[in-house]
Amino acid sequence: MFSLRQWQGSNDWQNWVGYERAAPEQKLTPSSVAELQEIVKNARANKKRVRVTGAAHSFSGCAKPEEIAVSLHNMRGLILVDKEANLATLYAGTYLYEIGAALKEHGLALENMGDVQAQTIAGAASTATHGTGITLGSIANQVVTWEWVDGKGELHTHHRGDPKTDELGNALHASLGMLGIFTKLTLKVVDIYGLKESNEVLDFEEGLAHFHETAHSHRHLEWFLFPGTNKIQQKTLSVIAPKAMTGTQKIKDHFDSVVTLNGAFYVLCELARMKPSLTKKVSEISASSIPNTKREGYSYEVFPTPRGVKFNESEYFIKLSDFDECISEVNHILLNDNKGSHFPIEVRTHKGETGMLSPTQGE
């Protein structure tokens, strides 16, 4: 999670995983649109580059601030709800973990989320951050209105139109900050709902044989393929009536997060790093340690998975029609030579989008 104390107490900056580092000349935290406009105008006058760093959760150097770093930490919160139209307007610096409870008070929820909730809504929308679900798109796909400050310090607003003709909307869809700094976003939201999560370990062949059926019969499907083991963890999420997660489940989740998912897995990761010959064994232990579990709660309680073990990842989008052949070849390669890798390969589904920089490009 972003720490304002750390931000203000150090001249340095680094992303979540620590691979991208910088020492910006200034770190600024505006509290209003007017302050942000002034920052941009001054930077322009002094020929300085501005980067909004969000929660620094991008794996790339996309938000690496080399001159002026800006945090929207002081521009957060739910601004307006239109219950009849199912719309919610948020300040751009609002963190994903703050949105669920705020919307719940109005009987609403985000249509979809990923399993990480540390990002800001602006960062998630700018980078097409996504969850899983064959009928569901990214966070960017939920945005219907953007407000932003451009490189001259001028304020703009745009309402999403027909994706076939709305060039500006398609450019804003996943803009990586290139068109300016988002200040407010209006999202299309849905009525509040609950989710039931189920986890099980399967042989690769069994999971693949039912992959498409499972993807269509559940709102969400996610895989974790353990390199060199021929095993997958399959996670499905199905919609249930809205209900709060029980206190017992929250305690169990915390224990699993601290002890199993992060504590034990961290030790295994360190073993593999220090002694690469143990990599395959570590992968086998990881696969065999996944319990068959179920849990229920409000959607925003079930979506997130704590990530205590830091990692750096790349993501590849392929057509669903090519999935079976592609993942089978990947699994075959890793069974013969796991390439010194023990970290699970994550598989998700995603509907097509029309944004100019959308990785799905309508597929």
Rank of each mutant, 00 (worst) to 15 (best):
E147H: 15
F204H: 12
E154M: 09
A171W: 06
D150L: 09
K184F: 01
E197V: 09
K196V: 11
D166Y: 01
Q142F: 08
M178I: 05
G180R: 08
E167V: 13
S198I: 12
T165V: 02
E197P: 04
G151I: 05
L176Y: 15
W148V: 05
E147R: 13
P163I: 05
L185A: 05
A171F: 02
G153F: 02
I192V: 14
A174W: 01
V190S: 09
E147W: 13
E205Y: 10
T183N: 06
G169Y: 04
L187D: 02
T186K: 01
K164S: 09
S198K: 13
L187H: 00
L155G: 00
L202R: 14
T165I: 00
W148F: 15
F182M: 12
E197Y: 01
W146A: 00
L202Q: 14
D166S: 07
G180T: 00
Q142D: 10
G153V: 02
L172K: 09
T145W: 06
L195H: 14
G177A: 02
K184Y: 01
D150M: 09
G194N: 10
V189E: 02
G169D: 06
L176Q: 13
K184I: 02
L168D: 01
M178C: 10
A171I: 04
T165L: 13
L185Y: 04
W146K: 01
L195P: 03
Y193H: 15
H156K: 07
Q142T: 15
G161P: 09
T165D: 08
W148N: 04
H158G: 08
E154H: 08
G161Q: 09
W148L: 11
L187M: 14
G169A: 00
L187G: 01
E154W: 03
I181A: 03
T183V: 15
H159G: 05
V144K: 11
V201A: 13
G169W: 05
E167K: 11
E147M: 08
